[in-house]
């Protein structure tokens, strides 16, 4: 009994530590005083400031545009990459491809950022929206591959034979059997790529020029100048958004599951009625 108590206390402590800074930020976003030390009264002022900050809104839009575009491209390229890797017969080629795939997964952000910077300057690609988008696509591809690949490997080759046997062409086998089967993997791949892109600071920091900024970079430069409760308000909004993402992801998963259940119940009632 005592042990259970200890473990609960320990976990509660860990959770408190994990969430204190976040709630601290959110709490002070409603502070009338201009700092994070003394709560002098409740106000929405910092949120008004945030939502009327045109520069910030443009940055938010740019950040999301980069996230959506990069995760979309990364998902498409990565999915075909995973299919290609799984389709290799030789085990050696497979593991060589996987090793190359994982280089960017294990490389520190600084290395990715610095080496991409060298790459872009070598290729003569100007720094800005394009270079940031390319970088985000590049570092999101391997995570998509890693999330799709297990689903592809799980796919029983007999299913492909069965589709062919029933008259499916290669394209029909691909679109009607392979893609639906690996969709959960593609979905989580896209989702992870999206969060990777939203979260990234270091790589963007290296490859963004003077004209283009994402949220992370903006927060960094503002934080270096000290406390501004507008950032608190921003973090509250971002936390809410993350929460929505999590809940959304959870329910989309649940929905696709329960949709089938519902269909079945519907069918059952049909059968019993007739």
């Amino acid at each position: 009994m005592k042990k259970i108590k200890f473990s609960s206390v320990y976990l509660v402590l860990v959770f408190i530590i994990l969430y204190i800074p976040i709630f601290y930020l959110i709490f002070y976003s409603f502070n009338q005083g201009g700092n994070m030390n003394h709560f002098t009264g409740f106000t929405w002022a910092h949120y008004q400031e945030l939502f009327s900050d045109k520069r910030m809104l443009v940055i938010v839009l740019d950040t999301f545009l980069i996230a959506i575009l990069s995760s979309l491209f990364a998902t498409i390229i990565g999915t075909f990459g995973a299919l290609g890797i799984a389709g290799r017969k030789s085990q050696r080629t497979k593991s060589a491809l996987l090793t190359l795939n994982n280089v960017l997964m294990v490389s520190p952000d600084v290395i990715i950022g610095a080496s991409f910077l060298i790459l872009f300057s070598a290729l003569g690609i100007g720094l800005g929206f394009g270079s940031v988008l390319l970088s985000h696509i590049a570092f999101s591809i391997p995570i998509v591959v890693l999330l799709v690949l297990p689903k592809v490997n799980e796919l029983d080759p007999a299913l492909l034979n069965a589709a062919q046997d029933l008259g499916a062409t290669n394209w029909q086998t691909f679109s009607r059997v392979i893609v639906p089967y690996i969709t959960p993997g593609i979905f989580s791949g896209f989702f992870m790529a999206f969060t990777y892109s939203l979260d990234d600071f270091a790589v963007t920091f290296f490859v963004t020029g003077n004209g283009f900024t994402t949220l992370s970079v903006e927060i960094y430069s503002r934080a270096r100048q000290g406390i501004s409760l507008e950032i608190n308000a921003l973090s509250a909004v971002m936390f809410l958004f993350s929460l929505l993402l999590v809940v959304g992801y959870y329910f989309v998963n649940r929905y696709s599951h329960s949709r089938r259940q519902k269909q079945r119940r519907h069918a059952k009632s049909e059968v019993t009625l007739s």
């Binding site: 994990l18 800074p21 976040i22 601290y24 927060i219 934080a223 973090s235 971002m238």
Partner: peptide
């Protein structure tokens, strides 16, 4: 456990600037 990892790293660092500052909590 996963949720905090989705909060931008810079925001978390920023929170600590507030928490640890000379007159911070």
């Amino acid at each position: 456990i996963i949720l905090p990892t989705w909060i931008n790293l810079l925001l978390k660092a920023y929170a600590f600037i507030g928490l640890l500052s000379r007159t911070g909590s």
